[in-house]
Amino acid sequence: MAWLEKHVPKMVLAPSFAVILFFVYGFIGWTAWVSLTRSRLLPRYDIVGFIQYQRLFDSPRWDTAISNLFIFGFLFIVISMFLGLFLAILLDQKIRTEGMLRTIYLYPMALSLIVTGTAWKWILNPGLGIEAVVRGWGFENFRFDWLINPDYAIYTIVIAGVWQASGFVMALFLAGLRSVDDEIIKAAQVDGIPTLRIYSAIIIPSMAPIFLSAFIVLAHLAIKSFDLVIALTGGGPGYATDLPATYMYALAFSRGDIGQAASSAMVMMMVVFAIVVPYLYSELRAKND
């Protein structure tokens, strides 16, 4: 009985641990293994080396997917952070309607990206959307056809992505602004330092950890972006707006090229881990200290 009492915690945790071990780490291992084989429609298990990765990096479609990830990721992160910080500072000025405004800025985060994509696909469609509205105002030559223009379609993903996530960044920064020590701010105000200076020299630098968190979350969202592209452009026109996530899905489920799908998934995972692992490691260490 005493033995049982002593080991109950382990036995309770064991099933979850086993599940994680198998379905996360075991599956990563499986994918890594298959990415080193010649698997096509069915997995094969004889390792041949890095030919799938070679094929991947020779593929122009993957090339597009990767450069799209950089364009989208960079703009998405920078604009969301900038907008989020700007809104947080504006909201921090003792606004009476703050609660309502916060609710409005943040609600997109509750929506499915498929819903967001559907809405923006309609708003941005050249025939009846914004283009038609502006033309209706008398600007007959106004053109806004990014959605169907292969060179600009990726920016429509940025527009919709920023709309969805910037309110969330605002909430993060607002919490950060509120956690700065009031005494310091009051002291600065007494010294007659202008508000802008207080923000740029005192408050914002003290929020470095929040910048890091926001960056990690946004980068993570960007790399995993799949739903938004599917709903907004379907990866098109052609494959102009493919991202690694949509590439992987297409190869796995429509093309039946498991080896390629596995290798692209592994590259995605390495990108995520390169960003997240150092962050998590330092967080966990800080906690244990």
């Binding site: 979850s16 641990f17 994680i20 071990l21 379905f23 996360v24 780490y25 075991g26 599956f27 990563i28 499986w30 994918t31 298959v34 997995p43 993570h220 790399i223 995993k224 799949f226 690694p244 996530a245 992987m248 899905y249 796995a252 498991i258 799908a261 596995a262 692209s264 998934a265 592994m266 995605m268 995972m269 995520v272 881990f273 997240v276 692992v277 998590l280 966990l284």
Partner: peptide, 18 residues
């Protein structure tokens, strides 16, 4: 820690075996 890291994997990496 292992469970925590599991939160961050891109799910593409488990789609095929799943």
């Amino acid at each position: 820690s292992l469970m925590l890291f599991g939160c961050f994997i891109p799910f593409q990496v488990v789609l095929l075996p799943m």
